[in-house]
Amino acid sequence: MNVIVYLGAGLMLLFGVYAVMEHSILRAAIGLALSSASLSVLLYVLGAHLAALFELSVCSGLVTVIFIAGISLSHSPKMEIQKEYRDKERNRLLPLVLIGVGLLLVILALTLNLQTPELAQLTQDDDVRDVLWGNRQADIWGQIALILCGGVAVAVLFREERREKK
């Protein structure tokens, strides 16, 4: 199991960095989706089965669709080249920074030698659905508000302009 966890986490980081560094925005969105897919494998192995499903369908699927919609709405001949953003050159240092920060954190963890918690055993006592609908109903009200918000956002922000302020 541990091998899959390390592999999933590593792939997630790798695809995340690719999404940041890639200068084609479409490939960056796909990198984000792959990062999300790796995370969902990771979540499944860690025992969050329902969350893994949601991660795969919502974050990896729906968010990518939204970004691609955004890309196609902002399509212009100039965008084909993408040279003006120079993301590859500007983010060239990112891997070095990440390796540096990572080494620093590893050294910190080794020198402090902290007492780290282990993962607790998975219990089958409480079901996600019971917790969500039984205990976390304040969050459900929040979700309702968020979805209303998203509806208005789509209606307002993506609309073609007819009248505008000055």
Partner: peptide
């Protein structure tokens, strides 16, 4: 189970943030 419900709620927020961010950028 508790943290799974958190993750599900965070995902909803994440999608709406993506919608608003993309909409403003467009």
């Amino acid at each position: 189970a508790l943290s799974e419900t958190f993750v599900i709620t965070v995902m909803v927020a994440e999608v709406i943030v993506a919608v608003v961010g993309t909409g403003t950028a467009v």
